[in-house]
Amino acid sequence: MELLSYAAFFLTTALVFALITLGLNLQWGLTGLFNVGVAGFVAVGAYVSAILTTPDDAARIGGFALPLPLGWLAAMLAAGLVAAIVGVATLRLKSDYLAITTFGVAVVVQLVALNAQGLTGGPFGIGFIPRPFATLAETPLIFNLANLAVVALVTLLVYLALEHLAKSPWGRVLKALREDERAAISLGKSARFYRVQAFALGGAVMGLAGAVQAHFIGFIAPENYLPTLTFQVWTMLIVGGSGSNRGAVLGSILVWAIWVGSGTFVAAFVPTDQQARAAALQIVAIGVMLCLILLLRPSGLLRARVPREG
């Protein structure tokens, strides 16, 4: 029972990562846009939904107590809007500028989360975020399963929508732009316009993931959205094989399993005073793994059968 309950919890967290990775796959895998500020977009979604749905708190703005679906919708809109602005600013320039700007977005979002206390609660974060099945919380198994069902449903919907989009005329234009920009432009497709759309949509998916996670944990704080998050999501996408939505989901679950597994190992076998150092070594290992995959198997570990379209 304990184990099943934990498995549900593990899978819920992994699927939230899968959602973020799906958003990144739309930006990178399908469109070739490099986002180094994933954590920033996730944070925007989480904070917007949290601020809109929480009850009144004297220390900060809020008390809107809106229903949960509205919070999620607003999270998608806000993160999508930020992504669209970044896209308009940088997508006419070289791809590196997008990378640098998204990196900056993540830094600034982190600053706002830490310092704009009246809006975000500052370093203490936001608590008492409504959880969809709070009444079931007394029996952890049912609570975790219910959460898993919701997150799995959202992930499935996003997955199906993205699969559909990738096959639609819109998705085919994106692929054409990625493979041969000049040919696509000669067919009368505005490269920048399509890219801004894809980038904004990917950002919206990340925002939704942030909101979903906030409502399933019930508490958010700035340190949830450090560059390590961006880095984890990138590793998940690269391991799964960029370009494939299925790979994005599988890569997320696999990398999260490795992450949690090594974390449990560290907690069990490393003395308490050395655990921070062991955790650092964990990130070193994942970083080396990312570089090795880029060097040796750039199409991803799980991507054996898919030939490159084109």
Binding site: D96, P227, A276, G287, L294
Partner: peptide, 25 residues
């Protein structure tokens, strides 16, 4: 080239956390 940028991001994570491992924060 953009793969190189990504690799530099991965290398940055590894290098920084190596320092944190060796010298703590």
């Amino acid at each position: 080239m953009i793969i190189v940028v990504m690799a530099s991001f991965g290398a940055s994570m590894a290098l920084r956390n190596m320092l944190e491992f060796l010298f703590t924060s």
